[in-house]
């Protein structure tokens, strides 16, 4: 069996008396696309932040390519970060930098690539996400939300990562732009041969980009299966979520 590129084993995380993750077990194999579904406040973002090392779990283990990175903020974690890409929900582009400096941030700061070479690579990656060189010198505030997501995607793929995380990649976009972003994600992930972990509550996005889908509910993975099986999961929680019904075992968080 292929060794998973990312494994979460019994991960728990609480904030005071709020137990957000209650033993999450999940893994993703190289080259596979896993989508984690879950309602608002289900702990999807906390799970992602633990996997990225932005939070430290209270219990459990996180393995990247077989190496334990649960509490490590040193060289092992740095090695992991050099092999991952991340697209944040808000894009998280740096306001003070131009679009190309955002895309080439890692090349300029961590990899110490010459500015002229880094700019060339940034423009090349902007083209991959259907953005022209004309946006390279603009600031993030000067481009639309959809374009910001494309820039963030270009930043996530520029180092040809082995694993890319997507946090609600289509949130706040109109359906057409959202579909275009999904197409780009799919195209770039396949082109890189990378594994992808996407957290979303957008079913259209999940159906489009997922090889496998998992459902996070009350801090645990309650169902996991191939994307093609999502409509025949046999799980009431999943069915309610997939069909977007207010009635069912999941109570809306009003």
């Amino acid at each position: 069996m292929t060794q998973p590129i990312l494994e979460l084993k019994g991960v728990e995380k609480s904030f005071g008396s709020n137990h957000v993750l209650r033993g999450v077990d999940i893994d993703v194999a190289p080259g596979r696309s896993l989508v984690v579904l879950g309602g608002s406040g289900s702990g999807k973002s906390v799970m992602l932040k633990n996997a990225l090392g932005l939070m430290t779990p209270d219990a459990g283990k996180i393995l990247f390519d077989g190496k334990d990175v649960t509490k490590d903020q040193g060289k092992t974690r740095e090695a992991m970060r050099s092999r991952i890409g991340m697209l944040f929900q808000s894009g998280a582009l740096f306001d003070s930098l131009t679009v190309w400096e955002n895309v080439a941030f890692r090349l300029l700061n961590a990899d110490k690539v010459k500015r002229s070479d880094a700019k060339e690579q940034a423009i090349e990656n902007l083209k991959k996400v259907r953005l022209g060189a004309s946006v390279a010198e603009l600031r993030p505030a000067e481009i639309s939300g959809g374009m910001q997501k494309r820039v963030a995607l270009a930043r996530a793929i520029i180092t040809k990562p082995d694993l890319i995380f997507f946090d609600e990649p289509t949130t706040g976009l109109d359906p057409i732009t959202a579909d275009a972003i999904n197409d780009l994600i799919l195209e770039q992930v396949k082109a890189l041969g990378a594994a992808a972990v996407t957290i979303t509550h957008d079913m259209a996005s999940a159906r489009k980009v997922a090889d496998e889908i998992a459902m996070l509910f009350e801090g645990k993975i309650i169902w996991r299966g191939p994307a093609s099986e999502i409509d025949r999961s046999g799980n009431d929680h999943v069915d309610q979520f997939v069909h977007g019904r207010a009635d069912g075992p999941i109570q809306p968080s009003l």
Binding site: K49, L52, G53, L54, E78, R81, S82, I84, M86, F88, Q89, S90, A92, L93, F94, D95, F105, R106, N109, A110, R155
Partner: peptide, 22 residues
């Protein structure tokens, strides 16, 4: 503060930039 709430500090970390140094 604005960088923190818009996840830019998290983005710095994932891009291997230490906020203390950068």
């Amino acid at each position: 503060g604005a960088m923190k709430v818009t996840e830019q500090i998290d983005a710095l970390k994932t891009l291997s930039a230490n906020p203390f140094r950068y």
